[in-house]
Amino acid sequence: MDANIAMCELRERKQQSYNAVCSDFAINHNMEELAKRIGVSGTMLRNKLNPEQPHVLSPVDLALLCKESNDYTIINTLLGDLGLVTAAVPVEEQSRNFVERVLEHSNLTGQLSGNVLALYKESRYPRSQKRKTLAIAQAALGNLVLLISDLENRTTGMSPLLSMGVDFIANGAPLPGLA
């Protein structure tokens, strides 16, 4: 019996969070432009994001909407209470080198620290500021994913073996037949 009560409380809290994030999403984005890009009418998209309407945002529409807007707050809100964190991996930033990634991470964590420092004494955390802080944290996670990927690519395959071999020879290792 208690499990059913707890499930209903989770459902109600999650539904309220979902409704709030959908409303914020509709306010923060151009619905007509996004609707064209995902293949639905602007009115239908607004109705799907409006909790007062009977229309429901399907998972496929949600995925398309998040991808086209590059705003994953709805998905992050849904997954947040489950203990899951998503990280958007920016495709266009694959060309950055290792040092640039580390510096970008320092920049994003500094912004995050500044936001937290400015708001830690506040009794109420405004929803708009919460969304901005979460966006910075998500960008930092995406950057970390790319940093990890870069490190993995540098330390797998033949590259490390060749690199170690060059370092070994360059540092004065004797070569058979030449020593």
Rank of each mutant, 00 (worst) to 15 (best):
N171L: 05
P176D: 14
P126W: 01
L78P: 01
T156I: 06
V166W: 00
Q138F: 00
D81V: 05
L151G: 13
T155W: 00
Q94I: 07
A88T: 12
A179Y: 15
K67L: 07
E122S: 11
M164T: 07
Y120V: 15
L134N: 10
A140Y: 01
L57Y: 03
V85N: 11
L108Y: 04
D71F: 02
M44K: 10
L79A: 10
S58T: 15
V21P: 01
P90I: 01
N97V: 04
E92L: 08
D24R: 15
N4K: 09
S41G: 13
A137F: 06
G157E: 05
A6Y: 04
A140T: 04
V89H: 06
I5G: 03
D150Q: 12
L49P: 04
A170K: 06
R46F: 03
N97T: 09
T133N: 11
Q94W: 09
A87D: 01
H55R: 10
R46V: 03
V89I: 15
V85C: 11
R154I: 00
E52T: 09
N19A: 12
M44D: 13
L117Q: 03
L34A: 01
Q129I: 10
K67C: 00
G42C: 03
K130G: 10
C66V: 11
L144H: 08
T156A: 05
V116A: 09
S149P: 04
Q138R: 15
E104C: 13
G110I: 06
N30F: 04
N70M: 06
R96H: 00
I169V: 14
E92T: 15
G39V: 00
R13H: 08
P54C: 08
N28C: 15
S95W: 12
C22L: 15
V89A: 08
L178R: 07
L78H: 07
C8K: 15
N70A: 09
A135Y: 03
A26D: 02
A26I: 01
A6R: 14
D61M: 06
E33K: 12
N97W: 07
K130M: 14
M1F: 12
R131V: 08
R46Y: 08
Y72P: 02
Q16E: 13
I5V: 11
H105R: 03
I169P: 01
G142C: 05
D167E: 12
V166K: 10
S106P: 05
P51Y: 03
T77L: 03
L134E: 13
T73Q: 09
D167Q: 11
G83D: 02
N171Y: 04
L141M: 13
Y18Q: 04
N115K: 13
P174H: 10
E32V: 08
T86G: 00
V91W: 08
L62H: 02
D2P: 09
N70F: 05
D71M: 02
I5E: 14
N171W: 02
K48Q: 07
L84W: 14
E93M: 12
L64Q: 06
V40H: 00
A170V: 01
Y125R: 08
M158D: 11
Q111G: 11
L82H: 07
D61S: 06
C8H: 07
